[in-house]
Amino acid sequence: MRLSVKDIEKSFAAKHVLKGVNFEAESGRALGLLGRNGAGKTTIIRIIMGVFPPDAGEISIDGMKVTQSGRTFGYLPEERGLYPKQIILNQIIYIGMLRGMNRHDAKQSALRWLGRVGMTEYADKKLNTLSKGNQQKIQLAATLVNDPDIIILDEPFSGLDPVNAQMLKDIVGELIDSGRIVLFSSHQMGYVEQFCDSIAMLNQGKIVLSGNLKEIKRGYDRSRVLVCADVPDIKERLSQLNLRDIAESVESEESGEAVIKLKDAADRDKLLRRLIDSGMNLDKYEILEPTLEEIFVEKAGEE
């Protein structure tokens, strides 16, 4: 299964929100949809789910229009989306039925998912009597009640404690393994790095970066090297090696650790050889890749 988003344009009144958005998502993979507040993430999600049409461009699943493909969606909105004052089980059954299930199946599935997130005992309670984290788990059960093919999670980890976050991670992991498409929108880059093989980064209505996360990182500057060794003053020790010909700078913030910036990334082996030759007993030699957070700030940071 392959979800393609092609050349999507959308404006509301005078505001041009999406200016030609392209990306693809594959089953068995999670795609991280990144972007600052107001970048257009929620708009593109709603267009994918057919809440409103794009001005131009198209969404397709395996080459078919979404409605023809018969694929189902599960959506976890950032701004939660259930009735606060109504009974939890009834609401989840209702959502399941709206998505085409019959009452019996919807009830079975609702109970199953409530059990999976450990909320069975709250099935007959009103939603607003629960803590925020527990409400979030109820929302997840509502999202997954129809066993959707394509799952869109908008900031799923907000409000979850580490134990619940782990449970969500496990569930998302299972969904990915079972061949669903998972679209994951978040500001929490740590989670995105854990789940997502590929990313699509939106900034001001355009995709500024997309593709396989590893490849993206590899494409970044590989001239920074982290060196760790069990020596008292690593900076002093390194300066004795006289690395000026290949290194631009040497910095050390913690004892036993230094970051060497090479003039040319191709000199990595040369540096390693010299370090070995110096007999300083290396603990670690690592090419420093930028974190997703750094990439995000770089790509989406400027106004």
Partner: peptide
């Protein structure tokens, strides 16, 4: 209550 967020994507 933002309940429509989910409703409008389900119906």
């Amino acid at each position: 209550s933002r309940a429509m967020e989910l409703l409008i994507t389900s119906a």
